[in-house]
């Protein structure tokens, strides 16, 4: 099992490397430190959301409202900053708001016994209306730079943003691999009935996972505000799909029970690397999704060719 997951991660790392070599050969700008930093910077929100999505998928759930949750949390952070609240407090409000929204989603799924995709589709509509009503058809713009300075100004030579993202990753890793929560989550993802029979508090695991994923989306909102300093009506619209793509590309099973955090990180980097490189190389805009889509198929296909257990499992497992 571990060996196979390593296989997927190796495939992805190789894909990133090949893409990077091609782009570097075609564009003198690609390998400059400035551009690579840009790619990392552009990966931040997606990475955080995708880590949350990885946990949800591993638990056999999904949250398509995660982009709107990020949007609402971003509005909270933005409004607080505009009201003159201390940037550090406003920044912390992001994950808190996200966690609260995650709790709502988790409660609907866990207590309402509604399939996650249906429940979160419903919440997607509600949250989107919430964003529209709060913004009133206008934009939240002209947000002060306090938070931007806070996360970007290096402390001892390292920007706090990098430390925060590292800590978030570490926290998810510890939760998943070093506490009972992780195996329980995977057990629920494999079969919630068996998990229940073996004495796992399925409802609590569900709630907790949604809260963690929500908090990560909320942290993404904090970084979103720090970087873009505005909230549009369409904020977060593409986030859930990209997060799912990154996680699945990374080797997390969409049916639950299996996940890899390193794979998700690589999936995120590959997606953003492709978007950046294709533009630098000058591929016309309309072809960019085609190339990215083909890439996804190739990576998954390579593994199918190698006779992956994961894909055979997909076929064998009753839907």
């Amino acid at each position: 099992m571990t060996r196979l997951l390593g296989g997927r991660e190796a495939t992805l790392a190789a894909a990133c490397l090949v893409a990077a070599l091609v782009f570097a050969a075609a564009s003198p700008v690609f390998l400059t430190p400035g551009n690579l930093l840009t790619v990392l910077r552009n990966s931040t929100e997606l990475l955080l959301a995708a880590l949350g999505m990885t946990l949800l998928l591993a638990m056999g759930a999904i949250d398509v409202s995660i982009g709107m949750a990020m949007g609402l949390a971003a509005i909270v952070v933005g409004q607080l900053l505009m009201a003159g609240i201390d940037p550090a407090l406003a920044g912390i409000a992001g994950p808190l708001a996200g966690a609260a929204l995650g709790l709502v989603a988790g409660a609907v799924v866990a207590f309402g016994k509604i399939p996650a995709i249906v429940a979160t589709l419903g919440l997607l509509g509600v949250y989107r209306a919430g964003i529209f009503l709060t913004l009133g058809g206008a934009w939240l713009s002209g947000i002060p730079t306090g938070l931007t300075d806070l996360v970007a100004t290096p402390v001892l030579g390292v920007p706090p943003a990098i430390v925060l993202i590292g800590l978030a990753y570490l926290a998810v890793f510890v939760l998943l691999r070093r506490t009972p929560f992780g195996p329980h989550l995977l057990a629920v993802g494999n079969s919630d009935e068996k998990a229940r029979l073996s004495g796992i508090a399925v409802t609590r695991i569900r709630l907790m996972t949604f809260v963690v994923a929500g908090a990560l989306a909320g942290l993404a909102a904090t970084f979103y505000i720090a970087t873009y300093r505005n909230v549009s009506m369409t904020i977060g619209a593409t986030l859930p799909l990209e997060a799912i793509a990154a996680a699945v590309l990374g080797g997390t099973s969409i049916l639950g029970g299996r996940c890899t955090l390193v794979g998700t990180v690589l999936g995120v980097i590959l997606i953003r690397l492709m978007q950046n490189g294709l533009l630098l190389v000058g591929v016309p805009s309309l072809w960019q999704p085609v190339v990215t889509g083909a890439m996804l198929l190739i990576v998954l296909g390579l593994e199918a060719g190698a006779g992956s257990e994961g894909l055979r499992r997909l076929v064998r497992r009753p839907a």
Binding site: T227, V231, T234, Q275, L279
Partner: peptide, 11 residues
């Protein structure tokens, strides 16, 4: 997406 527009402009 406003963030995607920023990414494209940066690139």
């Amino acid at each position: 997406a406003a963030d995607r527009a920023a990414q494209i402009a940066t690139d």
